[in-house]
Design a protein around this nucleic acid. Structure first.
Lengths: 110, 110
DNA sequence: TCCATTTATCGCAATATTACGATTAATAAG
DNA sequence: CTTATTAATCGTAATATTGCGATAAATGGA
């Protein structure tokens, strides 16, 4: 079916999964890494850096924008992309909430 | 094409993306949350808790096992699943490496 | 105005993912 | 040995994702 049954899960579970899914492609990781390094970036620079077609980069940017991790500002004919720092901290907090649920390094009870 | 061009990216980028992808489904988040809560879990208990067919749960378990986040131990006719605590810490470290690359809450340079 | 630049979107093709019923394999119980 | 239980796998169908060429839309400059 290819269709995730989101209605079976909590809002928290769906949000965390959406964020993880957005990070679940190496091109999107590469985009985020460069935006973090440079603090802002013209779309064309990303196209130069990442060996994928312009249309493909644009699609990945759209997905990152859809979950709110990045935002784009129009500057003439270009678009300048940035990480949204507040959202980024929120993402970190949500993931660490899951990570920290590991009580300790206790062994498996099996 | 549906085929990710992994060869264009670094090992680090591909690994992080693989882990994120594994977390990118609410059923897999739900499985992880329960394993973290209970410390160990028979497969059948997961099937009872999560409203998806047994075959579907089994597929999700297989994906989590493929990236090393969980491990299964055969116990008679059952299989007991656990989070791998070392791997889990490693996942946390890798994600936080990305999260912490945000220099500060400086504004976008656009 | 006309043309160049830049980025988003469209349309298509190929592959991946999700889901489930049915079946299989393995062990336990009687 | 036969039967029940449990979980993995197979087969299938539907939808999603990835990638790219082509095109469109918007702006800036000559």
């Amino acid at each position: 079916m290819g269709l995730t049954k989101t209605e079976n899960f909590t809002k928290e579970q769906n949000e965390l999964a959406s964020l993880a899914k957005a990070l679940g492609h190496p091109a999107r990781i590469a985009i985020i890494q460069q935006l973090l390094r440079v603090n802002s970036c013209i779309c064309g620079d990303l196209v130069d850096e990442i060996p994928l077609a312009q249309a493909t980069i644009s699609r990945h940017l759209k997905e990152l924008k859809a979950v709110g991790i990045i935002q784009g500002t129009i500057q003439g004919t270009s678009v300048c992309y940035c990480i949204d720092p507040l959202k980024w901290k929120e993402v970190q907090t949500k993931f660490n909430g899951l990570f920290d649920a590991l009580v300790s390094d206790q062994d498996c009870a099996c």
